[in-house]
């Protein structure tokens, strides 16, 4: 974690109301892992007192370029869209715990709902770089909000579902998951809470549905793995990236918690990526995280 002075290289509106901005920030590009985020300071002019958290969308250590992907939802993000190439931005990062990919996992299933693709986008690059096979299931309201495949690597299998059926599967993205659950070794998801809740329920029943037998001696058998540890997350089938309104983003203010089975968990410190079984889904989906 450090304060980074990033320079905007390019800002592009990729979909109605959605932007990707590329910044030159070599220190960040070299150190960020998939799922981690930066806390961005907006201009002081309008009395915006909080930074805005954005998951790092892509990072290229060779060129020192990182990108963030966001929807214009309020004054902070509106301010960002007015930046021009050469403008500088104060970022704090990289922050949080990223996705934990088990080294033995060969088939990764990524599930993204709407802007949730921003959280798993960097994982696509990392997984393909490491020679894994990746399927990305993407759900959107309609064709106008579908993430352009030109922004994705060719090695990826990209499956789209839309609520109105205007492109791809007609229905929810979670409908597609069952087709891939036997194929995939691990799944990673980000999106609206109801989607994550459904996925968590599916993941909880997966072992039973598939009739997976565990043969031989389990690695580390007998030693309990503390819930929430990196090791436990690596062994979990489903990891989810959570969102919450955030204050400090370093774990000091306790503002960004989501309810876990072991009490409140800070999205900025213990998260934003959690194993699905760490989250108290009834409380989380019930309370709802309302976006600014």
């Amino acid at each position: 974690m450090r304060l980074i002075d990033a320079e905007l290289v390019e800002s592009r509106r990729i979909l109605p109301g959605q932007w990707i901005q590329w910044y030159h920030a070599p220190a960040l590009a070299a150190s960020v892992r998939a799922g981690q985020f930066v806390h961005v300071r907006t201009g002081d002019w309008s009395g915006l007192v909080l930074r805005r958290p954005f998951t790092v969308n892509t990072a290229d250590a060779a060129t020192g370029i990182v990108s963030i992907h966001f929807r214009e939802v309020g004054r902070g993000t509106a301010w960002l869209t007015h930046l021009r190439a050469g403008d500088r931005l104060d970022m704090l990062g990289p922050l949080g715990q990223g996705f934990q990919v088990d080294p033995r996992s060969r088939h990764l299933l990524l599930v993204a709902g709407g802007l949730g693709i921003a959280d798993v986008r960097l994982l696509v690059d990392e997984a393909i770089r490491d020679g894994r096979q990746v399927v990305l299931l993407f759900g959107a309201r309609d064709a106008s909000e579908v993430y352009p495949s030109s922004f994705l690597p060719d090695e990826l299998e990209y499956v789209v579902a839309t609520d109105d059926g205007s492109v791809g599967h007609h229905g929810l993205v979670t409908d597609l998951v069952l087709d891939y659950e036997a194929w995939s070794d691990q799944a990673f998801a980000c999106g609206p809470l109801p989607m994550l809740g459904t996925l968590a329920a599916l993941a909880a029943g997966r072992t039973k549905r598939l009739g997976v037998a565990t043969l031989g001696r389990k690695r580390g058998a007998g030693r309990p793995i503390p819930i929430g540890s990196a090791q436990a997350r690596r062994k979990a089938y489903l990891q989810v990236a959570m969102e919450q309104n955030m204050g400090c983003a370093v774990g000091a203010c306790l503002g960004c918690v989501v309810w876990g089975v072991e009490g409140p968990q800070r999205v900025c410190r213990e998260g934003p990526v959690f194993a699905a079984n760490e989250i108290d889904w009834e409380a989380a989906v019930g309370a709802g995280a309302h976006k600014r």
Partner: peptide
């Protein structure tokens, strides 16, 4: 103390609201 249920913070004009609840 576990504190209050989320969401716990939000930005307001030139300020913010918090209700951590002494976690």
């Amino acid at each position: 103390r576990q504190g209050n249920r989320p969401p716990r913070v939000t930005e307001t004009p030139a300020g913010m609201l918090n209700s951590i609840g002494l976690q």
